[in-house]
């Protein structure tokens, strides 16, 4: 049984005056993990921002349906509350706002949207303590302001922690391995894998094949010049590792 979770049709988008996504098509069903690989500068991160509705990223044509609804008409926070989650490549620092405060605001915003009661402080603390323990996040880190002075690894752990407590139905991992050493990468990958289920899906955006050893995709797509130029199974990633992206870039010229 295949339930389409995310359906992207002929999506075109630009940043300022530059067309970056050009006729992008992809359908992702519940239970699937897709990987998008491509050369640097191909617009992979742009795709993730467009899907999340980041201001400044303008959709010029095309449709995106998320759980059957028109995703593009929703605000950033509505998309998030509906279950779209982006693990960002470079999460921003928010001085003065402790991680726990931030998480509490986020989780209750999402719960409210799902018409679930807000979590009271003890149950909330219990939840984040449990989840942070799995990810090796210290109590001290939870008290610090969001991402301020965090190492690359700490930032990605915090992103993964949010993934595990917000339980989105669709997660995009944008270069989730950048800035991680191998141990941190394993912790993050384990955290992400633990969230995989038949009812949710993931889109893993990466330049290197390395991450896909840990988060094994069902499908791999090559992204160049604003759209998918080739699709295949997980073996395609290994092939790309061998041959590089040169031929896709060349094709264009």
């Amino acid at each position: 049984m295949k339930t389409p979770l995310l359906e992207i049709e002929d999506l075109c988008a630009r940043v300022q005056d530059k067309e970056i996504i050009k006729g992008f098509n992809l359908t992702i069903n519940a239970g699937e993990v897709h990987a998008i690989m491509g050369p640097n500068g191909a617009g992979k991160s742009t795709l993730s921002y467009v899907l999340c509705g980041k201001p400044g990223y303008e959709v010029t044509s095309g449709k995106v349906r998320f759980k059957g609804q028109d995703l593009l008409s929703m605000s950033v926070e509505e998309r998030a509350r509906e279950g779209l989650f982006l693990i960002m490549q470079y999460p921003v620092e928010i001085p003065g706002v402790p991680v726990t405060t931030f998480l509490k605001h986020a989780i209750n915003a999402v719960r409210k949207h799902r018409q679930e009661p807000e979590l009271d402080t003890p149950s909330f603390l219990k939840l984040i303590r449990e989840e942070s323990k799995k990810l090796g996040i210290s109590a001290d880190m939870l008290k610090r302001p969001v991402n301020v002075g965090f190492s690359g690894g700490e930032k990605k752990r915090l992103e993964t922690l949010q993934l595990s407590i917000l339980k989105p139905s669709f997660a995009i991992l944008d270069e989730a391995d950048s800035g991680l050493d191998i141990d941190a990468l394993k912790v993050v990958a384990d955290g992400v894998n633990a969230e995989r289920s038949d009812s949710n899906a993931m889109l893993v955006i990466t330049h290197y094949q390395r991450l896909l050893n840990y988060i094994v995709p069902d499908f791999v797509h090559v992204f160049a010049d604003g759209h998918i130029v080739q699709s295949g199974g997980k073996e395609l990633a290994l092939e790309l590792e061998e041959s590089g992206y040169a031929r896709f870039v060349k094709e264009k010229n």
Binding site: S75, V76, A80, P95
Partner: peptide
């Protein structure tokens, strides 16, 4: 954007950031 991507509404996000400031 970061706050809103995690589901926090704009006004609430502003208040969080201002309180942090």
């Amino acid at each position: 954007f970061y706050c809103r991507q995690r589901g926090i509404g704009e006004e609430e996000a502003v208040s969080l950031i201002v309180n942090g400031f």
